[in-house]
Design a protein around this nucleic acid. Structure first.
Length: 430
RNA sequence: GACCCCAUCGUCUAGCCUGGUCCAGGACAAGAGCUUUUCAAGCUCUCGACACGGGUUCAAAUCCCGUUGGGGUCACCA
């Protein structure tokens, strides 16, 4: 039975790289009908924080990863100690005393060739004579990463270790410890690193790094997952939109690429829009409600949900991020639209009092205020006035929304309502 | 610096294992146009890559070697 693990350290949020590692582990487990184990590597008492543990678990759930088992290294110190003592007894490790008299347990690294077969990269060779003796248990009694990691992976029967490229150089050190402890070596697969647009490591300077930041910006988890999936893996048939469920059936770890990749926000935006287009408006509305309330656009205990759903439908196909709805659709919630000065200058500089008054009047006279009738009234009016439709469409749009861009004008007027539309039109008719 | 990893359009990739069907395909971005209503939506088109040098071979993006370039690791952090 395949058993993989994702082992984050709660010294920070779950970041993009961690999310991707979790994704490939989870995907591999699902595709192999194996188990996905979560292990919190909280041996560093100073830097590990409960809030980060909570944040990581929350982000993993948001991404849709459910784990079969959960462990905390801080609860397993006796296991590490036991195995270290074993190595001490067998003479493979020794004690080193610090000037203050504290004792650390050090593993004596033997000089030998170490060959590791990587599922993605093939054979990798190392020469352990280049590796210095490794601390197993620090003088404060806590285990080091490489030691705790091996003890846990072995005791938890982990069969495949799928992790970032940056761990390649830890692999020979760990392989030696497996051997010393008498544990069988698991299989390894090292994923290429995700770089920022500057070519260096993904950092806050080059953009948001935490998974939760992307959630807060209005990215759908399905879109982020799909994007992350395509970073270093492709189904081979030129398809880009692949649901995580579908990916389970198509995924093969051997097809994962070796090259480091760049995290490109532009493509993520495109992908997010693709998912937003077909997303359930009910679900989108649920996510927007707290945000709209924070802006005082609605009162969550007293608002028209059906109306909000109409607005969501009006915008969802054109939003890169769900949160853009807040700015793009603000004029529906505000008493008066926020006017874009450049738009006013471009489309409302000329005096259109007559035309706007007439259109307001036609709207007022509609007994059935429907999209079709609104458009009909508008088309009739411009025909009578003998002007091009767009000569009036743009000014009307700006008067109503304050913006030059947005959804189709007639649906927009329908959603805005007769009264509000007329009031905003007349404001520009002297 | 030492060790390790990597190398197809600006970016993500297909092709590479099993050499010929590739003067290299797709997507994002960019540019142009269309959409008698905008664009940040949609449609169409354009631009654009096998890092370099040697081999092997009738034939190389594909195999081998080297160079260059990029990245990672060298903690009693994980």
């Amino acid at each position: 039975m395949v058993r993989v693990r994702f082992a984050p350290s709660p010294t920070g949020n779950l970041h993009i790289g961690g999310g991707r590692t979790a994704l490939f582990n989870w995907l591999f487990a699902q595709s192999q009908k194996g188990k996905f184990i979560l292990r919190i590597e909280d041996t560093d008492k100073e830097r590990s924080k409960k809030e980060f543990v909570d944040e990581i678990l929350y982000s993993l759930k948001w991404l849709g990863f459910n784990w079969d088992e959960l462990y905390y290294q801080s609860e397993r110190f006796d296991r590490y100690r036991m195995h270290a003592d074993k190595l001490l007894k067998s003479g493979l490790a020794y004690i080193e005393k610090s000037p203050e008299g504290k004792e650390a347990i050090i593993y004596k690294v033997p000089a030998q060739k170490i060959i590791v077969n990587d599922l993605i990269r093939g054979q990798i060779e190392f020469d352990s004579s280049l590796i210095k003796d490794q601390v197993l248990i620090k003088s404060d009694g806590t285990p080091t990463y490489n030691f705790a990691c091996v003890v846990d992976d072995a005791e938890m029967n982990i069969t495949h270790i799928i992790r970032g490229d940056d761990h390649i150089s830890n692999t020979p050190k760990q392989a030696l410890i497996y051997e010393a402890l008498g544990f069988p070596l698991p299989l390894f697969a090292h994923l290429p690193l995700i770089m920022g647009v500057d070519g260096g490591r993904l950092s806050k300077r080059t953009g948001a790094t935490a998974i939760s930041d992307y959630r807060k910006m209005g990215y759908l988890s399905e879109a982020l997952l799909n994007y992350l999936l395509l970073l270093s893996w492709a189904p081979g048939d030129n398809r880009e939109l692949i649901s995580i469920k579908e990916a389970v059936g198509l995924f093969d770890i051997k097809n994962v690429n070796k090259t480091a990749v760049t995290f490109d926000l532009k493509k993520l935006d495109w992908m997010n829009n693709q998912y937003l287009k077909t997303a359930d408006p009910e679900k989108l509305a649920d996510e927007l409600i707290p945000l709209l309330e924070a802006k005082n656009y609605i009162n969550k205990d007293n608002f028209d949900r059906r109306y909000l759903l109409e607005l969501v439908k009006l915008f969802q196909a054109r939003l890169p991020r769900l949160n853009d709805f807040l700015d793009w659709a603000d004029f529906f919630f505000l008493e008066e639209p926020v006017m874009d000065e450049a738009a006013v200058k471009k489309h409302l500089a000329l005096d259109l009092s007559k035309e706007l008054k007439l259109f307001a009047d036609r709207l007022d006279k509609l007994s059935d205020f429907s999209v079709v009738n609104i458009e009909g009234a508008f088309r009739d009016l411009v025909a009578e006035l003998g002007i091009e439709a767009k000569k009036l469409i743009h000014p009307v749009r700006v008067a109503l929304t304050g913006k030059t861009i947005g959804p189709g004008l007639f649906e927009l007027i329908f959603c805005l309502g007769k009264e509000k539309s007329i009031r905003r039109l007349l404001k520009w008719a002297k």
